[in-house]
């Protein structure tokens, strides 16, 4: 397998403008000292293989969204470099599609219109755009809902439209930031299976952020566990489950599934406790 995305020593710091500086301790525990930047990610090295489904978990505020923004070209790393297909990322592009937690659908366009929106920067002729939008509407199982406006769709349907929009432009990589977090359990499970099916069918590389441990194991080929701020890679857990021909319910009852969720829960547990302690410290400072 070839590398689709490569992060080499990526660090991202944000300047804290007009705010009280955080008092942080340095690596050797000296301090606290006033610090006018916040380090979201700290020397992250990561390689995502072509066609891989990579899931990222970590405590809140550990830099997961920042990681996604960096790969998406929405921000630039403070240190290190990010390669996409071997070339450095210089900005956003249609070779990467982002799916946001809040759907980000244009309320004045229909489902089909929203999917077409994703194609309007590709330079495709209009007729082809329409045909492709229709194909992707079918792909996410929304045949017949093309004329509905977002306010006439359920949350799950909206997220399907958003996924279809991202896929339609034909990206090499799909970047998903807690896409199912706002959905109810049943809808989420339906969409998880749908996404696995789409992944199998299209062979796209997917980077998927979630807070759901169950979701991480169910979907991911590997699960990256990040530490609390500043985000570093704590561990990468490979998921070796045979998903072919099994449904989510039987996967969940697999002993290996239980073992993996347990492992990730343990890894996260320490980090979340540390993050809480840190937050209290900052508030008190």
């Amino acid at each position: 397998m070839t590398a689709r995305i490569e992060l080499r020593g990526v660090t991202k710091r944000f300047a804290l403008r007009g705010r009280r500086p955080l008092r942080t301790r340095d690596a050797r525990g000296r301090g606290p000292r006033p610090d006018h930047t916040v380090t979201a990610l700290d020397t992250v090295d990561l390689t995502v293989a072509d066609g891989e489904f990579l899931v990222v978990v970590g405590p809140s505020g550990c830099g997961k969204s920042t990681l996604l923004d960096l790969v998406g070209g929405l921000t630039t790393p403070t240190e290190g470099e990010i390669l996409l297909n071997g070339a450095p990322v210089t900005g956003p592009g249609t070779d990467r599609g982002i799916v946001f937690q809040q759907y980000a659908l244009l309320p004045w366009r229909t489902a089909l219109g929203n999917i077409e929106f994703g194609l309007e920067t590709t330079g495709l002729p209009r007729r082809e755009r329409a045909a492709r939008a229709r194909d992707h509407l079918d792909l996410v199982g929304l045949t017949g809902f093309g004329d509905r406006h977002p306010h006439e769709l359920s949350g799950g349907m909206k997220q399907r439209v958003a996924i279809a929009r991202s896929l339609a432009a034909g990206p090499d990589v799909l970047l998903m930031d807690e896409p199912f977090a706002a959905l109810d359990a049943q809808t989420r499970e339906g969409l998880q299976e749908e996404l696995l099916r789409i992944h199998r069918r299209t062979g796209r590389t997917i980077v998927f952020i979630t807070h759901g441990i169950d979701e991480a194991v169910l979907l991911g080929d590997r699960v990256v566990v990040l530490t609390h701020r500043p985000g570093r890679i704590k561990e990468i857990v490979p998921v070796e489950l045979d998903r072919e021909g099994t449904d989510a319910a039987s996967l969940r009852s697999d002993p290996e599934f239980t073992r993996l969720t347990h492992r990730i829960r343990e890894l996260l547990h320490d980090e979340v406790a540390l993050a809480r302690a840190r937050e209290r410290e900052e508030l008190a400072a």
Partner: peptide, 19 residues
Amino acid sequence: TLLRLARSMDLSPPALFRK
């Protein structure tokens, strides 16, 4: 989030404005 979406799609400023 709509602005982020537009940016992630690399929409040109006039297109961002119009669309």
